[in-house]
């Protein structure tokens, strides 16, 4: 295993220390329990927004803490849910009297830990609402599984809800917007290579030189299909068809399109993917009104990409365009 680290069990803490040195002017870092919070928190009268999850998906979530997006983020160990004490302290740190929204990706551990944290926070008199994102069409949704995973739409929900909170919308309104974003969003990903957690040092799965994994999760969980490698145009057709047919997105729809890198894919390839996505949607009469291309929700050094679509309305577009000032997403500020 080759990684730019000092010691496997120090990675999360040392990365937090690096973030503190880099962004200490705008972020505060708590180490025990671990969370990242915007330095002007709590903002009085504003709904606080807290997210979190296992580490290894950077810049999500810590890189999205700042004006117009998250008030705090709780990092767990690599690919392991953070714990309720982290979420509780983060919730207390960002409560400006208007309540706190928890944005939670649908994984069993994340959901249960955030539920416990919400119970504890309510016990301390803080109003908490939670919205669980579950946009990954690669997972069959049924009563008999833990349900679809939360992936790319989480990034977009954090941005849009952050803007809604800055407008001083109420907790109920911000939570409703979050549910709407999740409901109008769908994603699917693929991998060219597996990833490797620092503690295991082993690839999360084996993939041949000439193979790709379609429907990959963000923890190196195997996908839905393993197929021979194909040109970008075919890969995009595969992912985008599954995404578009699931909601479905129809001719005349306006969308926000995100082409996301899994961590080990060069930006030049992501733009080739975006080119193909643009063609694919144009052929179906779907208009890309806003877009995001880059590494936003990653899976360590995995090579591959994911595609996320959000059907836009005027309010969601306006909230997307609103100023944001975080380490990983910044415009208009």
């Amino acid at each position: 295993m080759k990684k730019l680290i000092n010691a496997p069990d120090a990675v999360v803490r040392e990365a937090l220390e690096g973030m503190e040195h880099a962004y200490g002017d705008r972020l505060r870092i708590s180490y025990d329990p671990a969370f990242i919070v915007r330095s002007d928190a709590p903002v009085q009268g504003k709904v606080g927004i807290v997210s979190g999850g296992g580490s290894g998906h950077e810049p999500m979530h810590g890189g999205f803490v700042g004006m117009g997006m998250l008030d705090a983020a709780c990092p767990g160990e690599v690919f392991t849910s953070p714990t309720p004490d982290q979420m509780l302290e983060a919730t207390k740190a960002v409560d400006g009297g208007a309540g706190v929204l928890h944005i939670v990706k649908n994984y069993t551990g994340d959901v249960m830990n955030f539920e416990m944290a919400a119970d504890l926070a309510k016990g301390e008199g803080i109003e908490v609402e939670a919205v669980v994102t579950n946009d990954d069409v690669a997972v069959q949704d049924s009563l008999y599984t833990a349900g679809r995973r939360g992936v790319g739409i989480t990034v977009i929900a954090e941005k849009i809800c952050g803007a809604a909170a800055e407008e001083r919308k109420s907790l109920a309104e911000v939570a409703e917007i979050c549910r709407r974003v999740n409901g109008e969003g769908r994603s699917m990903g693929m991998a060219l290579t597996p990833c490797m957690t620092p503690s295991s040092g082993e690839p999360s799965f084996e993939l041949g030189e000439d193979e790709m994994e379609i429907g990959i999760g963000i923890h190196g969980e195997p996908g839905r299909y393993r197929e021979p490698m194909a040109p970008a145009a075919q890969v995009v057709d595969r992912l985008a068809t599954a995404v578009v047919e699931d909601l479905p997105y129809n001719s005349g729809d306006r969308v926000l399109a995100m082409v996301n890198g899994m961590g080990g894919t060069p930006l030049i390839e992501l733009f080739v993917v975006y080119r193909e996505l643009h063609r694919f949607l144009q052929e179906r009469g779907i208009t890309i009104e806003r877009r995001l291309v880059g590494n936003y929700i990653t899976s360590l050094e995995m090579a591959g990409c994911s595609i996320t679509l959000l059907r836009l309305d005027d309010e969601l577009t306006r909230l997307w365009d609103a100023p944001v000032d975080t380490p990983a997403l910044r415009w208009g500020a």
Partner: peptide, 15 residues
Amino acid sequence: LVSSVGGAAGPLYGT
């Protein structure tokens, strides 16, 4: 247990 186990087992055994 809640604050040290993590994952799903932390909240379940904690509870």
